[in-house]
Design a protein around this nucleic acid. Structure first.
Lengths: 254, 254
DNA sequence: AACGCACTGTAAAACTTCTGTAAAGGTGAT
DNA sequence: ATCACCTTTACAGAAGTTTTACAGTGCGTT
């Protein structure tokens, strides 16, 4: 299988507001088993999940004032079906909606998209595809709100970073970094001389909370150091035991 | 969801006059996302686009005195719907009108055509169909307008692009590009040495948001590269995994 | 000093996601 | 019908990420 972007949404648009929060999703579906499953799964993927088991409650939660990044909406439900919910919701909100429907036929789909759904997924669907679509939608939505803010280049301690061209240079030599490495380096540089916790890195860069025995950040930092060390003389990233990492600011900096 | 155009295929005017004038289009629709998209897309297709987000404003712009080659008019809008706009407009103007409507049912269609619309397109429509119909209508009216800015030629890293003549040369050799390939190359050149996301390409060139498993941009880029590689020695387009593409600026750049 | 223990560094394996591209499918233009 | 072009599909291979495994390392306790 393949999908658009392995890169969690957060990656591309994490401006450095320090108040980071998980993406929140409202699931509206009367199938208890399914919602239970979705809830567990999406939570494990780092989303904040809320569930309502019928259309009315779903709608009232959706317009309650609480912010949702996305609504997963089932079409077939008792009392108020997905289309009704969508129609009423759209009267006041533009929250992205991903419609779920049992029937794979085009009619539902077209109708849903016309009414303002952002995408459509026929049941049964697999987890990966669901997440892929969620990411696509949220990313799309964030783009329009983020606009085209041009990011500033960064220079710290011999490291030069240009977000617009995704280019990193250390002591004049260009480095080839992956997007994740690039973003971690950027985060450290934005906080040069200040400690950055692993939790923070995980949330902001990987888009998910740090798990118990998760070593992936260590690996990214290790790889980053390895690449940097090829061209740099001195150490740039310091480990702060039990906490995280810190970018060493240049000595001529005070 | 596709019925043949009400408009007979136009054969009478198959050749456009070679002197260039931008066609201007007025879009009247309350769907902000859609109008944004249309605006970007139609502009990239070489139209001069103006947008109004409700019927009243749309009408007043339509009769303002400024010349439009075509009006794209949504049926369902708050305050004054598409039919009302059309009726009032026709009292004084004969500007061609292409109606957009959410439902594919015949009633709207008949009503619109009777009232003087030139064609009718059910939402959701694909951008190619839209452009096809716009061309058909405008051709039928065979109107040309002035007021287009002449686009600058571009030279980057051995690539030469002349929008006004839709000509591309690489290292002196002329390439035969399709319109889409041309526009993608142009966008990359306009952002030489800066990353351009697939989102952006999709939105600006294809006129639609990037969907989850959409590979068409990859294909266009692949084709573009293939054509370029026939005549160029070095790689011109760099892939930025998980993000998009970037045109490599000349090496003598720092 | 030596021990225990939780934390870190990192190579290598395992896995997942993304990209390139050929080929097939569609659509409007002619 | 045929052409040109755009899109979708399918798959292989590339690139990136995470897990595993184990060898250190820092640091408080004995």
């Amino acid at each position: 299988m393949n999908q658009r972007s392995a890169v969690p949404t957060v990656k591309e648009f994490n401006t450095m507001s320090s108040d980071f929060h998980l993406q929140s999703i409202l699931v509206i579906d009367d199938d208890l088993e399914l919602t239970e499953m979705l809830s567990t799964y999406l939570s494990s993927m780092g989303y904040q999940v809320n569930v309502r088991n019928d259309g009315e409650e779903g709608l009232s939660e959706a317009v309650s004032g609480r912010h949702y990044d996305l609504i997963l909406l089932d079409v077939m439900m008792p009392k108020m079906d997905g289309f009704d919910v969508l129609k009423k919701l759209r009267a006041s909100h533009s929250t992205p909606v991903l419609m779920l429907t049992a029937r794979g036929d085009d009619y539902d789909r077209i109708l849903g998209l016309e009414m303002g759904a952002d995408d459509y997924l026929p049941k049964p669907f697999n987890h990966r595809e669901l997440v892929a679509r969620i990411k696509a939608i949220v990313r799309r939505h964030n783009i329009s709100s983020t606009g085209g803010a041009v990011e500033q280049d960064l220079h710290v301690n011999g490291i030069f970073l240009s977000p617009s061209s995704q280019l990193a240079k250390v002591d004049g030599v260009e480095l080839t970094l992956t997007t994740t490495e690039f973003l971690i380096l950027r985060l450290l540089m934005l906080n040069a001389a200040h400690r950055v916790t692993k939790e923070e890195i995980s949330l902001k860069i990987l888009g998910k909370p740090l798990q118990a025995f998760d070593r992936s950040i260590d690996m990214h930092v290790s790889n980053l150091r390895k690449k940097i060390s090829v061209v740099a003389l001195d150490e740039k990233i310091k480990t702060i035991r039990g906490v995280g990492y810190m970018l060493i600011a240049g000595s001529h900096q005070w």
